[in-house]
């Protein structure tokens, strides 16, 4: 690709007033909006806007497995397909799925599986399709969060929702929810996800360099952020029904 403007990173990730480049404090999340039931053809679906990230997720299943040889006789299988649109990033992405997309698909799948009762659906598959149409850092976390909503919207029995968020280190400081620039120019990124039926982490990756005490602090920051996002998820899931109740019973 030859582009006329280069994707350059700023030298400093904090402004003079101590705030982050997008005006956030260290512990602030970007604005998040979620909605369920956005793709009528799907068994369940959801959409999330998280900062500039815009992501759709849809769920089909349980349904018979194609190709058939992937079916397991003792339990259902969960298959996650995370994809990015060509125009979702600064340099147009090649249309075919790359290694990164496959890896993230697997990570999200592993992260969601603990909340499902796959043993109840032998021989079938649940397929979760995730399409990132606009990307700005933290798409794996936003995708995990929206995929959990789509599963719940499909009426798939779940032990709980799953919520995901990253914390990281920029210019030597720990911050919550890295934006695209912060992710690329920062020093460390720690995506996490929580399954709420046991309050345990089901996603944890780390790239960068931090001390052990910084890890401890990061995990506490993550927990705090995850709780906030979980509330938004619950609200998105219920709002659809509550709005109808209010409108109808008025």
């Amino acid at each position: 690709m030859t582009l006329l403007i280069q994707d350059e990173y700023p030298k400093k990730l904090f402004r003079e007033d101590g705030k982050r480049l997008d005006g956030r404090e260290k512990l602030d999340l970007r604005p998040i909006k979620m909605e369920v039931d956005v793709i009528k053809n799907a068994d369940g679906s959801a959409y999330i806007e998280w900062g500039n990230n815009k992501i759709f997720a849809s769920v089909y299943g349980p349904r018979e497995v194609h190709p058939h040889h992937l079916a397991k006789p003792d339990k259902g299988i969960l298959r996650v397909f995370y994809r990015m649109a060509t125009f979702s990033v600064f340099d147009r992405k090649r249309p075919a799925p790359g290694r990164r997309e496959k890896e993230i698909s697997m990570i999200i799948s592993d992260c969601l599986e603990p909340v499902l009762f796959l043993e109840l659906y032998p021989g079938t598959s649940f397929e979760v399709f995730i399409e990132v149409v606009d990307a700005d850092g933290g798409t794996r976390c936003a995708s995990t969060t929206v995929a959990a909503l789509a599963l719940a919207d499909a009426g798939v029995p779940m032990r709980s929702l799953v919520t995901s968020c990253a914390v990281g280190k920029i210019d030597g400081e720990l911050v919550t929810d890295l934006s695209g620039i912060e992710d690329k120019a920062g020093e460390a990124d720690l995506p996490t996800a929580m399954t709420w039926f046991n309050d345990e982490l089901s996603l944890l990756q780390f790239d960068g360099q931090i001390t052990q005490s910084e890890l401890e602090e990061s995990l506490e920051m993550a927990q705090d952020a995850l709780e906030q996002i979980y509330e938004m998820q619950l609200d998105a899931l219920k709002r659809k029904y509550i709005n109808i109740q209010e409108e109808a019973e008025d």
Partner: peptide
């Protein structure tokens, strides 16, 4: 006692049920 579905909470005698609002 934890819900596994999106639904309406129902207490019938001493059972707690969830009447699903979506599903297959």
């Amino acid at each position: 006692i934890i819900s596994v579905l999106v639904g309406l909470k129902q207490i019938k005698k001493n059972y707690i049920n969830v009447i699903p609002l979506n599903g297959f």
